[in-house]
Design a protein around this nucleic acid. Structure first.
Length: 425
DNA sequence: TCTGGGGTCCTAGGACCC
DNA sequence: TCTGGGGTCCTAGGACCC
C-alpha cells in the first residue's frame, strides 16, 4: 500500500513572526490580512482566548487589549521565504514532494517510513527553521489530511504525528471527524450530506456511492473513493501552469470617483503584470471588477465585472493599463460607494509559445468570420461604437448571421459599449 | 466605522456547427 | 403548424481551499 504524508505547518504566519522575534514565544499572537482587516493566523494562545479564524479585527479589540495580544500585519515576503526553507528540507528527506500551499506539502513516503522517522523529520525542520508542523499519514491524500487533522487536534497525545495506516482503530478516528472536517467538504456540502443522514467521515465512508454521486457529482464520488483508500488524487510534483493571476484590494474608505478607481486599478495591473512576467507568461485576457460594500445593506449595491480576450497577447504594462482602463470605464457608474476593485489576467500563455504571428493565424471555421467583423468595424466605426457585431444572443436575432448592435459581450471581437449591466439594488 | 486576497475545479445552460 | 440530434465551446456561478 502506498502511503502519503501531509505536512501542515502550525499557525504558519504566527510561527514565522516568532522565528524573527523569539520574545513572542508563549504570548498570544495574531497576523492580519491585507488592509489589517481580518485575523488570518492565530497562535495557540490566541486561539485559547477564543479569537476565531477570519474574525474582523475591530470585533476583537477588547480581548486584544485585555490580554496584550501581539498583532502583526502580514509579511508575505517573509512567509514565502520561510516556506521555501521548510520545503527544501522536506524535499531532501523523501522521494517526492508536492508543495500544496505556502504551509502544506504532501510527501511520498518510503516503505520503511514510520512514526519515529516522522518525529525525527519534525524535529529537524523545527531545529533548522524554527517552524513547527504536524504530520499525518494515510493511504490517500484525503486520509492523510484526515490523519493530520487528528494529529493537530490531539497534539498532546500524538506529539503532532499520526499514522492512520498503522493505527489500531482507524474507524474510531473517522467516527470522530464531522463531515465538514473533511478536505473538500465545506458548509454547503456538509448540509447536503447531513440531509442524507451522513454526519461523520465514517458515515461517508460507508455511504451508498450512487447516492453520493447523484447528490455531489464526481467531486463527491472522488471523496468517497479516497476515503475508502482508493487514490484518485495523484501526487503532483510539478506545479501546474497558472490559469490566471489576480490583483485586488479593498479601499480603506469607500471611493466614488472614476479617477480614484483608475489609480487603484493601475496599481493592481502593475502588480499582476509583474507577476505574470515573473512566471514568463503573457496575458491574452483580462477581467476588471468593482464591488460596493456588501456589508452595508443600507446602501445600494453594484458589483459589476467585465472581461475581454484579445486576439494577441498583451505585452507592455502600458498596454495592460490602457485595456484595464477601458474596461473600468465600461462598468463604472457614478453615485456608488465602491469598496474594492481588482483585475485578473487570464488566458495566460507562455512567452515561448507566443512567438509573433501566432495569434495572427486563422483558426479554421471560426475566426475568419470574426475577423471580417473586426475589419468592418475598424474601417467604419468608432471602436467604442461598433457598427456591426456577431449575432448570437437574444430573440432579435436576425437569421443565422449578423445582427446590428448586438447586446452580447463577445469582447474577443467586438462589444457594444452602450449595453452595460444595470445597477443591482 | 472597521469586516482579505488569491486560487482551483465542476456544472449547467446557451450558442453554434454540421 | 410542423420545425432534429449530437458534439463542442464558452461563460457564469457555485463550492471549496489556503
Amino acid at each position: 500500500m502506498d502511503r502519503l504524508a501531509l505536512v501542515d505547518c502550525n499557525n504558519f504566519f504566527c510561527s514565522c513572526e516568532r522565528v524573527f522575534n523569539p520574545a513572542l514565544q508563549g504570548k498570544p499572537v495574531v497576523v492580519l490580512s491585507n488592509n489589517d482587516g481580518c485575523i488570518i493566523s492565530r497562535s495557540e494562545e490566541a486561539k485559547a482566548l477564543g479569537i476565531p479564524m477570519g474574525a474582523p479585527l475591530h470585533e476583537q479589540q477588547e480581548v486584544i487589549r485585555k490580554h496584550d495580544v501581539q498583532v502583526f500585519s502580514s509579511n508575505y515576503t517573509l512567509y514565502g521565504d520561510m516556506s521555501a526553507r521548510v520545503m527544501s528540507i522536506l524535499r531532501e528527506e523523501v522521494p517526492a514532494i508536492e508543495v500544496y500551499s505556502i504551509d502544506e506539502a504532501f510527501l511520498k513516503l518510503p516503505l520503511n517510513f514510520d512514526e519515529e522517522m516522522a518525529r525525527a523529520l519534525r524535529t529537524k525542520v523545527l531545529q533548522w527553521t524554527g517552524i513547527p508542523f504536524c504530520i499525518g499519514i494515510g493511504s490517500t491524500k484525503m486520509l492523510a489530511k484526515l490523519a493530520n487533522r487528528h494529529a493537530k487536534k490531539n497534539k498532546a497525545l500524538t506529539g503532532g504525528v499520526f499514522d492512520l495506516t498503522r493505527y489500531w482503530d482507524p474507524e474510531g478516528i473517522l467516527a470522530d471527524t464531522p463531515t465538514d472536517g473533511l478536505w473538500g467538504v465545506g458548509r454547503n456540502l456538509a448540509a447536503r450530506l447531513a440531509k442524507m443522514g451522513i454526519k461523520t467521515a465514517l458515515d461517508f465512508q460507508h455511504a451508498d456511492p450512487s447516492a453520493i454521486r447523484k447528490s455531489m457529482g464526481v467531486v463527491g464520488e472522488r471523496m468517497f473513493r479516497e476515503l475508502n483508500g482508493i487514490s484518485c488524487l495523484e501526487l503532483e510534483t510539478m506545479p501546474p501552469d497558472r490559469k490566471g493571476v489576480m490583483a485586488s484590494r479593498s479601499f480603506g474608505s469607500p471611493v466614488e470617483s472614476l479617477e480614484e478607481l483608475e489609480e487603484a486599478l493601475a496599481n493592481h495591473v502593475a502588480r499582476a503584470g509583474e507577476k505574470i512576467r515573473r512566471f514568463g507568461l503573457l496575458a491574452t485576457g483580462m477581467e476588471v471588477f468593482l464591488q460596493t460594500n456588501r456589508f452595508r445593506a443600507d446602501q445600494p449595491q453594484y458589483s459589476p465585472g467585465i472581461g475581454m480576450t484579445l486576439d494577441r497577447a498583451m505585452h507592455s504594462t502600458a498596454e495592460l493599463m490602457a485595456t484595464a482602463r477601458d474596461l473600468l470605464q465600461r462598468i463604472y457608474r457614478p453615485g456608488y460607494h465602491y469598496k474594492k476593485t481588482g483585475v485578473q489576467l487570464t488566458n495566460l500563455v507562455s512567452q515561448e509559445e507566443c512567438q509573433p504571428g501566432l495569434f495572427d493565424q486563422v483558426k479554421p471555421g471560426r475566426i475568419d468570420v470574426d475577423k471580417i467583423v473586426d475589419e468592418i468595424n475598424r474601417r467604419l466605426g468608432d471602436p467604442k461604437n461598433p457598427v456591426i457585431t456577431r449575432a448570437s444572443q437574444g430573440t432579435e436575432r436576425a437569421g443565422r448571421g449578423w445582427k446590428m448592435k448586438s447586446e452580447r459581450h463577445s469582447p474577443h471581437y467586438t462589444t457594444d459599449w452602450n449595453q452595460l449591466p444595470e445597477a443591482k439594488d
